[in-house]
Each structure stands twice: as structure tokens, then as C-alpha cells.
């Protein structure tokens, strides 16, 4: 009987000691990570286009942190979904087509002759990338345009075009070589010939 008590006491003591060590370590070596919303926000493309149904990327990041689906960001596309899935430890799902499809990156250009200087696009631009004043011609700061499309709708004279970003010799690069021969031929047809 005595050994039983002894065992219980020893185990209890051990539990207390290790518990204390673990507890101390948890406090002493605490790693301060970014808040999850910031981490999510960092993975979003920051287009601020609102296609996800939120007024910008940060609000969507907040919504994801609160449990919204991660597949509502068309500009980020699959890459972003995959990164988000990795971060949050959930399964990567296909892009929700309801919120738009993945498209090539574009930049807004104002046909300056036609601009009447109404400033409506300036107010719509989520990243302040349009320059101009009332009754003055407006122009887009190309380097800062995210291609979000939000300026198209308010323009009363439809003088804004979304043009794809052009490839220059500086931005051009090689594509991945064609696959190894291993996959260059179509798989054989394994289907057995029918006998009927």
C-alpha cells in the first residue's frame, strides 16, 4: 500500500514540476506572431478591388479571420488561395466564380481628350492613383494603379480603358521549358476493346 502512495506522490510531484517548467517556458519563450488578420492581409494582392464583396483587402482579411471562405479573391487567383490555405491549414478550394474569374493584370488609362474633369474616378480610386482636379483633365499614376476597375463605373463619359500590362524587354523572361519527354506524349488508352 505504501508503494502505491509513494508512486502517486512521485507522479504528482513530477506533474507539478514539469507543469511549472512548461508553464514558465510558455511565458518566457513566447513568440509574438503577427495578428492573423495582418498575416492574411499580407497574402492578399492588395488590389482593393472589392470583388470579394468587402471594401478592400484588409476588410476581407478580417472576414477570412472570422471564418469567411478563402476563394473570393479573383485577382489573387489560385496562388493566393493556396497561400491562404497553407497559412490557415485548410484545404485549397477552387476560385468562387461568383466573385469573378482570374484575369490578366490590367492598368487603367484615361483617354485624356475625353475627360471632363468630374473627379468621380478620383473619389472611387481605392489607392489614390488618379491625379486631377475639378474641371482639369485627370490621369492615372500607372505605377500605382492596381487595375481594380473601380474607376470605370463612376465615369460619366466612359473615357477610362483597362489595358493589359505590356511586356517590355526588361520585364520579359523565359517560360518554363516544355515538359520532359515523360509526359510529352498522351497517355495510352488502357480501355479494353469492347466485345459486344
Amino acid at each position: 500500500m505504501q508503494t502505491l502512495y509513494l508512486a502517486i506522490i512521485i507522479l504528482a510531484l513530477l506533474a507539478i514540476v514539469f507543469g511549472a517548467i512548461l508553464g514558465f517556458a510558455a511565458i518566457r519563450f513566447k513568440v509574438d506572431g503577427d495578428p492573423i488578420v495582418d498575416q492574411i492581409d499580407n497574402l492578399l494582392p492588395q488590389t482593393q478591388c472589392g470583388q470579394c464583396g468587402h471594401p478592400g483587402c484588409k476588410p476581407y482579411a478580417q472576414a477570412i479571420a472570422d471564418g469567411e471562405a478563402i476563394n473570393r479573391c479573383p485577382p489573387g487567383g489560385e496562388t493566393t488561395i493556396k497561400a491562404l490555405a497553407d497559412l490557415l491549414g485548410v484545404e485549397a478550394i477552387a476560385l468562387d466564380a461568383e466573385h469573378g474569374t482570374e484575369a490578366i493584370r490590367t492598368i487603367a488609362y484615361i483617354r485624356e481628350d475625353e475627360c471632363i474633369g468630374c473627379t468621380k474616378c478620383i473619389q472611387a480610386c481605392p489607392v489614390d492613383a488618379i491625379l486631377g482636379a475639378a474641371k482639369q483633365m485627370h490621369t492615372v499614376i500607372v505605377a500605382e494603379c492596381t487595375g481594380c476597375d473601380l474607376c470605370l463605373e463612376p465615369c460619366p463619359v466612359d473615357c477610362i480603358d483597362m489595358l493589359p500590362v505590356e511586356t517590355t524587354p526588361l520585364s520579359w523572361h523565359w517560360q518554363q521549358p516544355k515538359q520532359l519527354i515523360a509526359t510529352s506524349t498522351a497517355p495510352h488508352n488502357h480501355g479494353a476493346p469492347s466485345h459486344d
Binding site: Q46, P126, V127, T146, H173
Partner: peptide, 25 residues
């Protein structure tokens, strides 16, 4: 070259994203 090009693209995308985030905020 492909990998370097993609890395460059990714870096510039990240740069643009950061810029946009700051401007948006």
C-alpha cells in the same frame, strides 16, 4: 531563367501590393 523571371515578377508584385496596401490605408 524562368525561375529568376518569376522571382522578379513575384518581388515586383509584392512591392506593388505593399505600396497599394499603404496607399489604401
Amino acid at each position: 531563367r524562368f525561375a529568376k523571371g518569376r522571382l522578379k515578377d513575384l518581388a515586383s508584385e509584392a512591392h506593388i501590393a505593399e505600396l497599394s496596401r499603404v496607399r489604401f490605408e
